[in-house]
């Protein structure tokens, strides 16, 4: 279960999306998310879904992997769909039973919301599938760098993010190891009430915290040994470049967003 976390699941590749500048990918992903919230009817939403459907083969990420990343959403999707189904009271009643009423508008809204969430998550996972965590945080750092003017420690924040991402797999491995070691000493993690189970976690959490602190200390020491002293005057091994490719991608996005505006204008809004 703990292994299913998909944060930072980069898939090595050489596609158009892989080669794009991380900054433009981040900006365009946000643009996509905003645009999809501005969609007012199935026509404009359809255009956005079409765009995400095109992006998947362009990224050359296996469709199965994208679908797998959507799987954890099932619960949220069902939950919002059910709420939308029964809480929308306007429109023509299709079916009703006691306090439950189902209207055609409710049905449309439920489908609309579900499609919107799916497209949104699919595109954001494409960002993490095609961008290494390092590039991602680098990109965020560069995008936020104007905030340095108001004394926001952008570089430190980005570094913290990089380190946090880097240590997720390490910590998962560590938890696995400690759990096995305590189970070998007869620790029972599965039975008992809430209090007993919470108590049973102590033999795992304490060694985990101890080793995390040790690791953090070692890392800080190693960084200082390499004369790390923050972002001031630091150059990069890999420069980020905004290329023709990024220009083209931005152009396509601009067209799609224009399309959304036009479709919103010409067809009657659903919600």
């Amino acid at each position: 279960m703990i292994r299913d976390i998909t944060i930072g699941q980069y898939m090595p590749g050489n596609s158009f999306l892989h080669k794009m500048d991380a900054r433009s990918k981040i900006v365009l992903t946000f643009a996509f998310i905003l645009a999809i919230f501005f969609c007012k009817n199935f026509w404009s939403l359809g255009l956005m879904v079409l765009l995400s459907a095109v992006l998947v083969p362009v990224s050359r990420v296996p469709v199965r992997s994208v679908l797998r990343s959507l799987r954890p959403l099932i619960f949220i999707l069902l939950f919002t769909a059910v709420l939308n189904l029964f809480y929308t009271k306007s429109g023509n009643v299709l079916w009703s039973w006691r306090f439950l009423t189902l209207t055609d508008k409710g049905l449309y809204t439920a489908v609309f919301m579900a499609v919107r969430i799916l497209a949104l998550v699919a595109v954001s996972t494409l960002l993490t599938f095609t961008t290494t965590p390092t590039d991602l945080t680098d990109g965020i750092e560069r995008l936020l760098s104007p905030l340095k003017a108001v004394k926001v420690p952008v570089h430190s924040l980005a570094m913290m993010m990089t380190l946090a991402l880097r240590f997720i797999p390490t910590l998962i491995e560590e938890i696995d190891r400690i759990m096995s070691a305590q189970k070998a000493r007869g620790a029972d993690l599965e039975t008992g009430g809430f209090v007993r189970r919470a108590k049973a976690l102590l033999p795992i959490l304490i060694p985990l915290f101890v080793s995390s602190f040790r690791r953090a200390y070692d890392l800080a020491f190693a960084m200082e040994c390499r004369c790390y002293r923050g972002g001031e005057g630091r150059t990069r091994m890999r420069q980020m470049r905004f290329t023709v490719r990024d220009g083209a991608a931005c152009g396509v996005f601009a067209l799609v967003i224009a399309g959304v505006a036009v479709l919103n204008f010409f067809f009657k809004p659903l919600i």
């Binding site: 096995s180 070691a181 007869g186 029972d188 033999p203 060694p207 080793s211």
Partner: peptide, 29 residues
């Protein structure tokens, strides 16, 4: 569960599994 106690398994770098307040309590876990 019985096998856990009949076969005592001590992992590599077992010092990272210590967690109690005292050595005595840890050995008695």
């Amino acid at each position: 569960r019985e096998a856990r106690f009949r076969v005592g398994l001590c992992f590599q770098y077992p010092e990272y599994q210590l967690f109690e307040e005292t050595v005595y309590k840890d050995i008695s876990f």
